[in-house]
Amino acid sequence: MRPLPQQPSQTAKQPRPVLDSVFAFPPNRDTLGGTSYLIVGNEGNILIDSPADDPTNQDFLRSHGGVRWLFLTHRDAIGKTAAIQQNFGCEVLIQEQEAYLLPGLTVTSFSQEFTLNSTAQVIWTPGHSPGSSCLYYSDLGGVLFSGRHLLPNPLGEPVPLRTAKTFHWRRQIKSLKLILERFTPKTLQYICPGANTGFLRGKRVIDNAYLRVLSAEC
């Protein structure tokens, strides 16, 4: 008796819009369930962390103009970065302490900050990992792509989460204070977290972000 051909376990889900020009990809098992985002912009698209390297995501990226930059918020978000760079010819950006994890790739590294274009800048926020970083997008009232530096807790509030893999908790708290010093309620309206998005319960972003981070810090 011939074995039946293998069928996909489920239909691949399409990335979904979360804000104007911002899309979220389904959680990726290659990055421990991390959520990746795409910012579609006139100065080139920015992919934040590696989504699954499957035909659905590849077609979506191509249909929206490809990838100019792939920014990795921390070491566990690398996933299939090599395949993404090969497929799209994008530049890969990661904080300098974790660049060694991408041998053989063409990588741009940074120390404290790096400006990608007129609306996007990355900021080193160590603690979760040595090179943990966030991307700030100044449009739409200000959006922080927080990686695993700030994540929603079971109540959907943005907080630093201490886990068994946390590199340095005190540095993570110091990085939280840096975010609060750098922004205001007017310049930080939203957070797009890099994991735990199920805790948002259908809300695709964390709104009123600055005041909610301030409450967590207090």
Rank of each mutant, 00 (worst) to 15 (best):
2 R>M: 11
5 P>D: 10
7 Q>S: 10
8 P>F: 02
11 T>E: 10
15 P>V: 09
15 P>E: 07
22 V>G: 03
22 V>D: 03
24 A>V: 03
25 F>G: 00
26 P>Q: 12
26 P>H: 11
29 R>I: 15
30 D>P: 00
32 L>T: 08
33 G>R: 10
37 Y>V: 01
42 N>D: 14
42 N>R: 11
42 N>E: 15
43 E>D: 14
44 G>V: 08
44 G>I: 11
45 N>L: 06
48 I>W: 00
50 S>C: 14
59 D>S: 12
62 R>S: 09
66 G>S: 09
67 V>D: 05
73 T>D: 12
73 T>S: 15
76 D>C: 04
76 D>F: 02
78 I>A: 08
79 G>Q: 07
79 G>K: 02
80 K>T: 14
84 I>V: 05
85 Q>D: 09
86 Q>T: 15
89 G>W: 04
92 V>F: 07
99 A>Y: 05
103 P>H: 13
104 G>R: 15
108 T>F: 01
111 S>H: 11
111 S>F: 01
111 S>V: 12
112 Q>T: 14
113 E>G: 01
114 F>V: 09
115 T>L: 07
116 L>C: 07
125 T>H: 08
126 P>M: 04
126 P>H: 06
127 G>K: 06
137 Y>E: 06
139 D>N: 13
141 G>F: 10
142 G>I: 12
143 V>P: 09
144 L>W: 00
145 F>Y: 03
150 L>G: 06
153 N>I: 06
153 N>F: 02
159 V>A: 01
163 T>I: 12
164 A>C: 00
165 K>D: 01
166 T>V: 14
166 T>M: 13
167 F>C: 08
167 F>G: 00
168 H>T: 07
169 W>C: 13
170 R>G: 13
174 K>H: 14
174 K>D: 15
175 S>L: 10
185 P>I: 05
185 P>W: 03
186 K>R: 13
187 T>S: 15
188 L>K: 04
189 Q>P: 02
191 I>D: 04
192 C>Q: 02
193 P>E: 04
194 G>L: 03
197 T>D: 07
200 L>W: 07
201 R>I: 10
204 R>N: 05
206 I>W: 00
207 D>G: 13
207 D>N: 13
212 R>G: 08
212 R>W: 04
216 A>D: 08
216 A>Y: 08
216 A>M: 06
218 C>D: 07
